[in-house]
Lab assay of single mutants.
Amino acid sequence: MAAAAAAGAGPEMVRGQVFDVGPRYTNLSYIGEGAYGMVCSAYDNVNKVRVAIKKISPFEHQTYCQRTLREIKILLRFRHENIIGINDIIRAPTIEQMKDVYIVQDLMETDLYKLLKTQHLSNDHICYFLYQILRGLKYIHSANVLHRDLKPSNLLLNTTCDLKICDFGLARVADPDHDHTGFLTEYVATRWYRAPEIMLNSKGYTKSIDIWSVGCILAEMLSNRPIFPGKHYLDQLNHILGILGSPSQEDLNCIINLKARNYLLSLPHKNKVPWNRLFPNADSKALDLLDKMLTFNPHKRIEVEQALAHPYLEQYYDPSDEPIAEAPFKFDMELDDLPKEKLKELIFEETARFQPGYRS
């Protein structure tokens, strides 16, 4: 834990890192770190609560700039109880001085990944967590956004079992017609939660990839272990087919990539493993919904509104309290091709509203 900075004593240090967030945020305490930044909790002297502050230093890398800009653009436009918001952003007053960006968010005690390492969940908890994931996802999908990296560590939890989806750095506007060349190379989302079509096709992607990830998360809540822990690309596919069985001819016809289709045709026939054999203690309604989410063919996979209306979630289902976005989200430009200098300018502009004396 960093010592509390005395008023006016300059930035606090946390594990050798400068955290320049005073005077409003003090009493910093280390939480963890990701690929390009550290997260601390801090005391907000204005709202009198502890908050989470993520320090991001992305400006050396085009990919990190892209992810940072995506996350900020999306989260500043989203407003939903099951999606983490941005409360404040701290950065230098000029673009030349801006080396880091500090993002202030609600402090959540833990995440689903940490929880599943230590606790076996009751059916009631599984049901409530799944409902909140789908409630947040309904809003995301209504904005025409794909999260693309749903996994237990991106689901934040607090002691009252509130759940918030975080990390929109890989999110995209849904565009089933656009052929994202190089899709697989830039697709760094965790393999275990990846839909089979991501490994088999490169053309376009749809909201059904997020539903697949939610199915993987439900299976993990039922058993405290990942359902498809593939060691590499082909191993991942083999794990999936080992449980779902061989795809039907109709399902194979959806695979545009001939090499991928021929690979699947070359494999020995596998039978589907019954879900109640894998999860003998699970609620039968939970397994019915799991089956509809972990469907090989993305066109037959359940959609988020149908999933919310499934009998497993009937005690929570309330369409009048499951809000959607006001308007579909649009990125003005494809960020993939922009140089990091341009992305830095866009991050600077996007964060201006939090600067003292800002006038829109």
Rank of each mutant, 00 (worst) to 15 (best):
S248D: 05
C166Q: 09
G245T: 00
K259Y: 05
R50N: 02
Y233G: 05
G204K: 11
P196D: 10
S284Q: 09
G8I: 08
F354V: 12
Y25K: 09
S360N: 13
H141T: 05
A143R: 13
A325I: 04
P58F: 00
H61W: 02
L335W: 09
K55T: 03
Y316P: 00
A42G: 02
L156D: 10
P196I: 06
E326I: 00
Q315H: 13
D332A: 10
V51S: 02
V145W: 05
D336H: 02
E314W: 00
V145A: 03
A195T: 10
R301C: 06
I90F: 14
K164W: 08
D251F: 01
W192Y: 13
L170F: 04
E33K: 14
R225S: 15
H141F: 07
R194D: 05
C254M: 00
A282W: 01
Q249C: 05
G245V: 14
K203D: 10
E350A: 01
R135L: 13
E250V: 10
Q249I: 05
D210C: 10
A52S: 14
Y131L: 06
V188N: 04
S142Y: 02
F228W: 02
R172E: 12
P323E: 05
L258Y: 07
Y139G: 11
V46G: 05
R79H: 09
P226Y: 03
Y317F: 15
Q355P: 00
M38P: 12
P58R: 04
Y139I: 08
I95P: 02
T118E: 11
Y139Q: 12
I90Y: 01
G34W: 14
E96L: 02
N154Q: 12
K117D: 09
I53Y: 00
L252V: 01
L150T: 04
I126P: 06
L290T: 08
L156R: 06
L112K: 04
N27E: 05
G37E: 15
D179Q: 10
R194I: 15
L234R: 06
K99M: 14
D283S: 02
R301H: 08
I90T: 03
K203C: 12
Y64C: 09
I53C: 01
K344W: 02
L112T: 03
D288Q: 07
L290H: 07
K300E: 10
L150V: 03
G215D: 11
I133H: 02
N158C: 11
L155S: 02
R24F: 04
Y317C: 13
E341C: 03
Y128L: 12
M333R: 07
L218V: 08
R50C: 06
L338R: 01
D162S: 01
I240Y: 06
R261C: 08
F354Q: 12
R353I: 15
I56L: 11
Q17H: 15
F228S: 09
C40N: 00
L112Y: 06
R70D: 03
L115I: 01
L287M: 15
P229K: 06
N281W: 07
P319S: 12
K73Q: 13
F19Y: 15
G242Q: 08
K151L: 08
M108V: 04
Q132E: 10
I217C: 06
I89Q: 02
Q105L: 13
R50I: 00
L121R: 03
L258E: 09
L290W: 05
H299S: 05
L157T: 11
Y25R: 11
G37C: 07
L170N: 06
E322Q: 02
H147N: 14
L155H: 03
D179I: 05
D210Y: 15
L267N: 00
P298N: 02
H310G: 05
I56Y: 06
L237N: 05
Q306W: 01
V101C: 07
K285A: 06
R261K: 10
H239C: 09
Y102W: 02
L116Y: 09
D291K: 11
L338C: 02
D100E: 14
C254T: 09
P152C: 10
K138D: 09
V304G: 15
G182K: 09
N158S: 15
I31L: 07
I74T: 04
L222H: 06
T26Q: 12
V18L: 13
A7F: 11
I56S: 03
Y128H: 01
G357S: 10
F329K: 04
F329R: 06
Q132L: 15
L112A: 03
K117G: 12
